[in-house]
Amino acid sequence: MKQYPIKIIVNGKSREISVTADETLLDTLRSKLDVFEVKNGCEQGDCGACTVLIEGIAVNSCLTLAIQADGKEVTTVKGIGTDENPHPLQESFHKYGASQCGFCTPGMITSAKALLDENPNPSLNEIKNGISGNFCRCTGYTKIFDAIESVTNENQS
């Protein structure tokens, strides 16, 4: 298969890799770049477990060709916050118990960040819409709503 050299800036780090034309960003991230926090839940764009930010916009990485991310900033949950410096959303997910099995959590936090970046004070309905692409089977969403609600304009750094 024809290989294309591309450069993706993953969480601020430039990663150079060769990809085929039809390889998805999800496949590339997981199988070539060891970016395991981006999860494979369905590969059909239904569940949102593979959510990443591309230039700040939340998308399903399973529905994006890797080559379409060439030269672009791709942010995962690890680029949103770290152990030393967690994002307020991560603090609130922790405090409110918004993560149970945790499998949907990276994608969920990523979508929530995109929501709050665009709308720092969303209503409950706007929050529901903001994470409408991310399924959670464990929490029933209540504590996820609570966690996102608690991070308002005042609390965000």
Partner: peptide, 9 residues
């Protein structure tokens, strides 16, 4: 249409 992630692409 779809969900928010779909609409972004």
């Amino acid at each position: 249409l779809g969900n928010i992630l779909t609409r972004n692409r």
